[in-house]
């Protein structure tokens, strides 16, 4: 196992303690619920999308440090992106955590900005779904899926 500090980087601890964009979003026009039944992590994601651009992102819920920090970092990264860019970011983030080829995964890191602090999760397979819960929920919100997203 890699060092715990690779997983619990300062930025992650900080975002889990003081999640950004946390709380309800009045006037949102998309939302979805995400649920990780194994851990009991739950989150609700709210989006305000205007002319195809994600103007506001907020989330509520309770989860572990990894899922909370991931949702917080995602909320910062999404602002100003259009839907296609948001989905593309998800694809690259997913590859960062799950791409078998380490080199290819590392290639993703540079383009992910602050999100790359979560790269350490790839060495903790049991925790990958914690890191991706918010993103799966984002996908559901953009597609207005009514049923809660489950990572199982």
């Amino acid at each position: 196992m890699s060092d715990l500090r690779d997983l619990y980087q300062e930025v992650i601890i900080d975002h889990s303690r003081r999640p950004r964009n946390f709380g309800p979003l009045p006037g949102h026009n998309h939302h979805a619920e995400g649920f990780n039944p194994l851990c009991g992590d739950k989150l609700t994601l709210y989006l305000k999308v205007v002319d195809g651009i994600i103007e506001e992102v907020r989330f509520e819920g309770a989860g572990c440090a990894i899922s909370t920090a991931s949702a917080s970092l995602m909320s910062e990264a999404l602002k100003g992106k259009n839907e296609a860019q948001a989905e593309e970011l998800f694809a690259r983030f997913h590859a960062l955590l799950t791409e078998a080829d380490e080199k290819q995964a590392a290639n993703q890191a540079e383009s992910l900005g602050k999100l790359q602090v979560l790269a350490g999760v790839r060495d903790f397979p049991a925790r990958i779904k914690c890191a991706t819960l918010a993103w799966h929920t984002l996908h559901a919100a953009l597609h207005d899926q009514a049923a809660p997203v489950s990572t199982e």
């Binding site: 997983l7 303690r17 194994l38 009991g40």
Partner: peptide
């Protein structure tokens, strides 16, 4: 307090201690 059970579980595991975390 302030630390989710899952994070505790990962840290304990890194010390070789196997516990169950969750519901």
């Amino acid at each position: 307090d302030d630390v989710h059970a899952h994070d505790v579980g990962t840290i304990l595991d890194s010390e070789g201690v196997a516990v169950r975390t969750g519901h």
